[in-house]
Lab assay of single mutants.
Amino acid sequence: MQRVNMIMAESPGLITICLLGYLLSAECTVFLDHENANKILNRPKRYNSGKLEEFVQGNLERECMEEKCSFEEAREVFENTERTTEFWKQYVDGDQCESNPCLNGGSCKDDINSYECWCPFGFEGKNCELDVTCNIKNGRCEQFCKNSADNKVVCSCTEGYRLAENQKSCEPAVPFPCGRVSVSQTSKLTRAETVFPDVDYVNSTEAETILDNITQSTQSFNDFTRVVGGEDAKPGQFPWQVVLNGKVDAFCGGSIVNEKWIVTAAHCVETGVKITVVAGEHNIEETEHTEQKRNVIRIIPHHNYNAAINKYNHDIALLELDEPLVLNSYVTPICIADKEYTNIFLKFGSGYVSGWGRVFHKGRSALVLQYLRVPLVDRATCLRSTKFTIYNNMFCAGFHEGGRDSCQGDSGGPHVTEVEGTSFLTGIISWGEECAMKGKYGIYTKVSRYVNWIKEKTKLT
């Protein structure tokens, strides 16, 4: 034993070699072989497995989906700052455009905790909710729209109204504003409101030439003092309507412009014939205590009207009353817009006519005020429907199939267009061939041609 100890002390290297040989010859039971080890760690190889990531292109799944990435790591994937920024906006807080917040056709661009709407022409605001041009839906104005110097929408209202708090709607500024039905039992019968379409306001006024200088022999019209197929109006439903009495009662109609003036057809009036105007009328054979009678003290036909040349060209006249009318729910003026808007309103496509005229061709006159909704007829169809001249200051309205029309005794009465609950004068009943005849239409004086003249002559002093 002493000898062994001496050998170990003198030859430590020998001992180490012996131990190493023993270990190498022993069977290893701690580690699995290569094949079995792979069965336990069965993990798919990654895209760049075996390579240094710093030297390969980034992978979106590896960089940002398996674990949260930084902007720089995302930049490695896209290799483009702009594309990385677009991805980053949604990656950080989701897609803010998912709810489609942009209105009126706006395009949404996502941002971090926010979004941006790219608005089409005519709109602005956070969600493109603000109209900035009158060309689109009248700028959301209830009545009139004008573009300011910086191309912003400025709404306005006709006389007797003021802008509401929203700067879009119009509200009454006087007790009985024009064009409004205020009798409670008839307010439910107000005709369907007309909503502004998209309009090209630059070209809204037709490029028409008034044929002022045409000389033409007097034409022989049949029954051209021209509501057939209409309905009984309720008291106060058309408070701007008046009836004219002269040699015979209810020979023509008219509309209240203001307390002192009536507008009617020029062919209705004769110099030297006494005319009485009755406002607030409903049943011409009954006294309903809503009527107001006034005498006409002055007749002003349009300066281009000449019955000797043509009885229905420039067929418009103004009547001055001896005493002002007292405005109330049964006696209310009709609204008159400017030339541009009167023309736009007419193009809405349908209007209402009213009167006490004959209820059928050569038949009896109506006792109760009649009204009828009539569609506008395109000019080409209008011209083809008659052998008589249709001037540019006239328009056609009615039904091709016949059966409904204005008729004798309705002449001078109103053709009105309702705009968001307020009625505007767009025409004056003038003439036609018979009444409600198939293929024939009622012919009306186009008020847009005469609004400046009306307003100039009827100013209240």
Score class of each variant (00 low, 15 high):
374 V>R: 04
98 E>D: 08
119 C>Y: 02
457 K>A: 11
346 L>G: 02
349 G>N: 06
227 V>W: 14
228 V>H: 11
14 L>H: 03
418 E>D: 15
95 D>M: 08
81 T>R: 10
445 T>W: 02
287 T>P: 11
9 A>G: 15
203 N>Y: 08
270 E>V: 05
98 E>H: 11
226 R>K: 10
142 E>N: 05
388 F>L: 13
425 L>I: 04
184 S>L: 13
221 F>D: 13
105 G>F: 08
102 C>N: 00
403 G>A: 10
345 F>M: 09
409 G>M: 11
301 P>M: 13
267 H>A: 03
324 P>C: 03
12 P>I: 15
307 A>K: 11
211 L>D: 11
60 L>T: 07
70 S>V: 09
207 A>N: 11
33 D>Y: 04
133 T>M: 15
212 D>I: 08
373 R>I: 06
356 W>G: 03
122 G>A: 06
150 D>M: 11
95 D>A: 15
365 S>D: 12
245 N>L: 03
310 N>P: 04
444 Y>I: 08
207 A>F: 09
68 K>R: 11
424 F>P: 01
330 Y>H: 12
295 N>P: 02
137 K>Y: 06
93 D>P: 15
349 G>W: 06
317 A>P: 01
272 G>W: 03
349 G>P: 04
254 G>I: 00
448 S>T: 06
90 Q>S: 15
243 V>Y: 14
384 R>C: 03
252 C>M: 00
44 P>E: 15
333 P>A: 06
59 N>S: 08
414 P>D: 03
244 L>N: 01
152 K>N: 14
187 S>Y: 09
57 Q>S: 11
321 L>T: 02
12 P>C: 11
53 E>V: 08
286 E>K: 11
166 N>S: 04
90 Q>W: 06
216 Q>N: 08
3 R>M: 11
163 L>P: 04
413 G>I: 14
285 E>D: 10
211 L>Q: 12
78 F>Y: 15
410 D>A: 07
450 Y>G: 01
356 W>R: 10
199 V>I: 13
407 C>W: 12
13 G>F: 09
372 L>H: 14
98 E>C: 07
282 H>P: 06
323 E>Q: 11
133 T>N: 13
239 P>N: 00
31 F>R: 14
442 G>L: 08
208 E>H: 12
116 E>R: 05
187 S>H: 07
80 N>H: 07
281 E>P: 08
12 P>D: 05
167 Q>I: 05
65 M>P: 11
159 E>N: 07
401 E>M: 09
282 H>R: 07
166 N>P: 02
83 R>V: 10
407 C>Q: 04
198 D>I: 12
259 E>D: 06
88 W>V: 13
48 N>C: 05
396 C>V: 02
423 S>E: 03
254 G>W: 00
225 T>E: 11
372 L>W: 14
153 V>A: 09
193 E>K: 09
382 C>N: 02
148 S>F: 07
188 K>L: 08
171 E>F: 10
251 F>I: 10
459 K>L: 09
32 L>Q: 14
61 E>V: 06
385 S>A: 12
176 F>K: 04
86 E>S: 15
395 F>H: 02
166 N>D: 09
452 N>L: 05
165 E>A: 06
370 Q>D: 03
137 K>E: 10
358 R>V: 06
45 K>R: 13
307 A>W: 06
437 M>V: 15
368 V>P: 10
456 E>P: 02
422 T>W: 02
115 Y>A: 03
67 E>A: 13
356 W>K: 11
336 I>R: 00
358 R>T: 14
375 P>K: 14
352 Y>S: 10
385 S>Y: 15
172 P>W: 03
286 E>C: 05
124 E>D: 15
26 A>I: 12
341 Y>G: 04
123 F>L: 07
67 E>Y: 08
422 T>N: 03
3 R>L: 12
403 G>L: 09
450 Y>A: 01
173 A>K: 10
306 N>A: 07
330 Y>G: 04
199 V>R: 11
311 K>Q: 05
140 R>T: 06
377 V>P: 02
266 A>K: 02
374 V>W: 05
200 D>K: 11
111 D>R: 14
230 G>W: 13
6 M>W: 14
417 T>D: 03
278 V>H: 05
207 A>E: 12
9 A>E: 05
363 G>T: 14
73 E>P: 06
89 K>Q: 12
297 I>A: 04
232 D>Y: 13
174 V>Y: 05
410 D>G: 06
444 Y>G: 03
44 P>N: 08
273 V>M: 03
212 D>G: 09
239 P>F: 01
188 K>G: 13
166 N>R: 02
134 C>V: 03
339 K>L: 06
304 N>K: 08
274 K>G: 03
135 N>E: 07
46 R>V: 13
282 H>E: 03
460 L>N: 08
347 K>P: 01
141 C>H: 00
308 A>K: 10
410 D>M: 13
452 N>F: 05
20 L>Y: 04
45 K>C: 05
220 S>I: 11
447 V>F: 01
262 I>M: 01
88 W>M: 15
329 S>F: 05
420 E>C: 06
235 P>N: 05
143 Q>M: 07
57 Q>D: 15
419 V>C: 04
414 P>L: 12
92 V>G: 15
458 T>V: 06
317 A>M: 03
375 P>Q: 11
211 L>R: 06
340 E>Y: 15
223 D>P: 11
225 T>L: 11
295 N>M: 03
282 H>S: 09
401 E>Y: 08
126 K>F: 11
108 C>R: 02
51 K>I: 07
373 R>W: 04
408 Q>G: 14
50 G>R: 09
148 S>N: 10
448 S>N: 05
52 L>I: 15
229 G>P: 08
76 E>W: 05
148 S>D: 08
261 W>V: 01
313 N>A: 13
196 F>K: 10
316 I>L: 08
430 S>R: 03
393 N>Y: 06
309 I>K: 14
343 N>W: 03
100 N>I: 04
457 K>W: 08
371 Y>W: 14
111 D>M: 08
356 W>Q: 04
235 P>R: 09
44 P>Q: 07
241 Q>M: 11
198 D>Q: 13
260 K>M: 06
271 T>A: 04
242 V>H: 00
133 T>V: 15
445 T>S: 05
172 P>F: 04
103 L>M: 11
176 F>T: 07
416 V>H: 05
324 P>A: 07
220 S>N: 12
22 Y>L: 06
334 I>N: 00
340 E>L: 11
76 E>N: 13
166 N>G: 04
403 G>N: 13
124 E>C: 04
282 H>M: 07
427 G>F: 00
34 H>M: 13
360 F>L: 14
399 F>T: 13
215 T>S: 09
57 Q>L: 09
347 K>Y: 09
157 C>M: 00
425 L>Q: 03
124 E>S: 15
335 C>D: 01
204 S>G: 07
133 T>H: 14
51 K>C: 04
155 C>I: 01
376 L>Y: 07
95 D>P: 12
330 Y>F: 15
